[in-house]
C-alpha cells in the first residue's frame, strides 16, 4: 500500500515536471489539434467541441472571479444569459426583436457594452458585501433576471425565449465573411477562445492580476498597503461579466435561440463545477473542467437518467477530496 502510494506520487511528480518543461510544445500541439479538429471528426463530435469551447470561455471568466480574486459568484449565468438575450434582441428575426444585423462588428460591441453596464450595476451592489453575502446576492440577482425573462414575455418571449437568432457574419463594405456553416462557426468560437485565454493569462500575470491574487490571499493587508481593493474587484467583476456575456452570445448564435435556461442557477452551477473540478485559479483547469463536465452528461445519459445527480456527486467528491481540482493534482499551485 505504502509503496504503491509513493509510486503514484513519483509518477505525478514526473508528469508535472515534464509538463512544466514542455508547456510550450503542449500548447502548440493542442492548437494544431484544435485547428484540424473539424476535418477529422463527425458532426456530432464537432458540435460537442463547439459547446466545450463556449463553456470553457464561460468557465474561464468565472475563474477570474472565483480562483484569482476569491469572489464566489453563484450567479454568473446572469451575464451569460444577458449576453445571449442582448444578441438575440439585436439580431434575431423574431417579431419581438429588433432584427438589425448579424454583423459581429456591430453586435459584439453592443453585447460588450450591455453586459459591462449590467456588471457595473450588479457589481456595485454585490461588492458592497463579501463572503457568503456576496454569494447569496449574486445567486439571487441571477434568479431574478431568470424570473423576469420568463414572466416578461412581451419582451423576452417568455419560457420559449427568443428564436431565430442567426449565426454571425463579419463584414466591412464589400468584404464579407459568414459563419453560418458549423465548421466555420467552430473556427470563430476557437478564435474567441484563444483570445480569451491569452487575454486572461495576460491579465492574471500583470500587476493588476497580482493585486487580485493579493486580495484573494488577504484583502485587509492589501488595503493596508494602500490598494483601493474595491476598484480592483469591481474591474475584475466587469471584465469577467463581459467575457461571460460573449460566451452567452456565442451559445445563442450556435443554438439559434436565447432561452431563460441560460440565466438559470443551474447554469451558474455548471460553470462553478467546471472551475472547481478543473482547478480554481489556473485558467487551464477550468478548460479541462468544461471539457469533462460537457462530455460527462453526454456519455452518462446512455447509462442513467440521473446525470445531474452525477454532476452534483462529482462536485461533492472534488470539494471533499481534491479542493485544488484536476489541475491541482498535476501542478503545484503557483
Amino acid at each position: 500500500m505504502g509503496t504503491e502510494r509513493t509510486k503514484i506520487i513519483t509518477h505525478i511528480a514526473t508528469a508535472r515536471s515534464w509538463l512544466a518543461a514542455n508547456s510550450r510544445w503542449v500548447l502548440i500541439l493542442t492548437l494544431i489539434l484544435a485547428l484540424i479538429f473539424p476535418f477529422s471528426v463527425k458532426t456530432y463530435i464537432l458540435s460537442l467541441g463547439i459547446e466545450v469551447l463556449i463553456f470553457a470561455i464561460f468557465a474561464m471568466s468565472l475563474d477570474l472571479l472565483l480562483g484569482y480574486t476569491g469572489l464566489p459568484s453563484l450567479g454568473h449565468a446572469a451575464f451569460f444569459g444577458l449576453g445571449a438575450y442582448i444578441l438575440a434582441y439585436v439580431s434575431s428575426n423574431s417579431e419581438l426583436a429588433l432584427g438589425l444585423t448579424d454583423n459581429l462588428l456591430i453586435t459584439l460591441p453592443i453585447v460588450i457594452l450591455g453586459t459591462a453596464l449590467s456588471a457595473v450595476i450588479l457589481g456595485f451592489l454585490a461588492l458592497r458585501t463579501s463572503g457568503v453575502f456576496f454569494l447569496m446576492i449574486t445567486l439571487a440577482f441571477a434568479q431574478m433576471l431568470f424570473s423576469i425573462a420568463i414572466r416578461w414575455s412581451s419582451v423576452t418571449g417568455g419560457s420559449d425565449g427568443m428564436t431565430g437568432v442567426p449565426r454571425p457574419t463579419l463584414g466591412i463594405g464589400t468584404w464579407h465573411l459568414s459563419f453560418t456553416d458549423r465548421a466555420d462557426f467552430y473556427y470563430l468560437v476557437l478564435a474567441f477562445f484563444c483570445i480569451t485565454w491569452f487575454l486572461l493569462r495576460y491579465i492574471v500575470r500583470s500587476p493588476f492580476g497580482l493585486a487580485l491574487r493579493g486580495i484573494h490571499a488577504n484583502e485587509q493587508r492589501m488595503r493596508g498597503l494602500g490598494y483601493n481593493t474595491f476598484r480592483y474587484k469591481f474591474t475584475a467583476f466587469i471584465v469577467s461579466g463581459v467575457i461571460a456575456g460573449i460566451a452567452g452570445m456565442l451559445l445563442s448564435q450556435y443554438f439559434w435561440h436565447a432561452v431563460p435556461h441560460n440565466l438559470f442557477w443551474n447554469m451558474s452551477g455548471q460553470a462553478l463545477i467546471m472551475v472547481v473540478v478543473g482547478g480554481p485559479g489556473t485558467l487551464t483547469g477550468p478548460v479541462i473542467g468544461a471539457t469533462l463536465m460537457r462530455l460527462l452528461p453526454n456519455f452518462a445519459s446512455t447509462y442513467t437518467e440521473l446525470s445531474e445527480t452525477l454532476m452534483g456527486l462529482v462536485l461533492i467528491l472534488f470539494v471533499l477530496l481534491a479542493p485544488g481540482g484536476i489541475f491541482g493534482i498535476f501542478h503545484k499551485k503557483r
Binding site: 454569494l135 462553478l272 454532476m311 452534483g312
Partner: peptide, 13 residues
C-alpha cells in the same frame, strides 16, 4: 457552501 450546492443538485434530481 459548494458542498451544500452539490447536495442541492443531487436532491433536485
Amino acid at each position: 457552501v459548494l458542498f451544500t450546492f452539490g447536495l442541492a443538485l443531487v436532491a433536485a434530481d
